[in-house]
């Protein structure tokens, strides 16, 4: 009898699965609690930044070009900057936040000591950043409405587009942080990858004026697909939007798996 009482508990052979909800929720809970301390600053800049773009480009360029592809220039830029806002609120927080959390604060060490695997960690972080990108990516649209863009029902899908594109960019940022050795190296990625993609996405000027090869190349640019989707959400969907959507889904899946693979190499010796 005594022996039974002393038994230290037979090992429970319950095998925990992959991508468990409770593990993902735990990581999300950490992010949400953290976000409560800096949401004001993030929200402020997410509104002010597109407003500045609209004022600068809308009234600056807008005085030179009145319409682009049949759209008022303010409408063109107001919808196009959604893609920029999504990029800014996903790729950059993911790159810097991930690096800080795994290298400087060692947060990921603490999380992986808990019943959470790298796959769940990366998934949860990407989902969280994607959700934020969905919200903050919509801000330029709201600002543009204030500046005279007509609201339409299709715009209700814009947060979803922001979420989808944001998920891919978040995973891209995590992947970048996992691959690069130093936070200073991020500027290579910013200058050679993100800035060109950002400028040649049909956000500030239409691609129609550019050489043919740029048109082909832009099909590999997730920002281009995001810009197209948002334009069409505001001014009417087309059949080609299924292709844009499929590209963003593929982009998200590929980046997500790569981020998990490279992050696991970083976090597990």
């Amino acid at each position: 009898m005594a022996a039974e009482a002393v038994s230290t508990g037979a090992p429970r052979r319950r095998r925990l699965g992959r991508l468990e909800r409770s593990a993902i929720e735990g990581v999300l809970a950490r992010e949400i609690i953290n976000f409560s301390s800096f949401w004001r600053a993030t929200t402020f800049s997410s509104i002010v930044q597109p407003a500045i773009y609209l004022i600068a480009f809308g009234f600056g360029f807008g005085s030179l070009v009145s319409t682009v592809g049949g759209l008022d220039y303010v409408q063109f830029v107001g919808t196009g900057t959604v893609a920029t806002a999504v990029l800014f609120s996903s790729a950059f927080p993911a790159m810097f936040g991930t690096f800080v959390k795994y290298k400087f604060q060692r947060t990921y060490d603490a999380i992986l000591a808990a019943p959470v695997d790298t796959e769940e960690l990366v998934t949860a972080e990407s989902l969280w950043i994607a959700a934020r990108a969905g919200v903050f990516g919509t801000m330029p649209l709201l600002v543009a409405i204030v500046f005279g863009l007509d609201p339409s029902w299709g715009m209700l899908i814009v947060p979803f587009i922001g979420f989808l594109a944001g998920f891919g960019w978040a995973a891209f940022g995590i992947l970048t942080a996992a691959v690069l050795r130093s936070i200073d190296d991020f500027s290579y990625v910013t200058s050679t990858v993100l800035t060109p993609l950002f400028l040649v996405a049909g956000t500030f000027f239409p691609l129609s004026g550019l050489p043919q090869w740029v048109h082909y190349a832009s099909n590999a640019n997730p920002l281009f697909h995001t810009v197209e989707l948002v334009h069409h959400a505001a001014f009417g969907f087309k059949i080609v939007d299924l292709g844009h959507m499929a590209f963003l889904v593929g982009f998200g899946i590929v980046m997500w798996r790569l981020a998990i693979r490279y992050m696991a190499r970083r976090l597990v010796d």
Binding site: R30, I33, R106, D109, A110, A113, A114, P115
Partner: peptide, 29 residues
């Protein structure tokens, strides 16, 4: 791991969170 507690050599607390918030996060994890 669900049955282990780990105290690392290098402090990895969330420094912008309060004492209670740090514990709340780990109660979830």
């Amino acid at each position: 791991r669900a049955e282990c507690g780990v105290v690392p050599q290098l402090d990895n607390l969330d420094i912008t969170l309060t004492v209670e918030q740090n514990l709340r996060v780990f109660a979830r994890l």
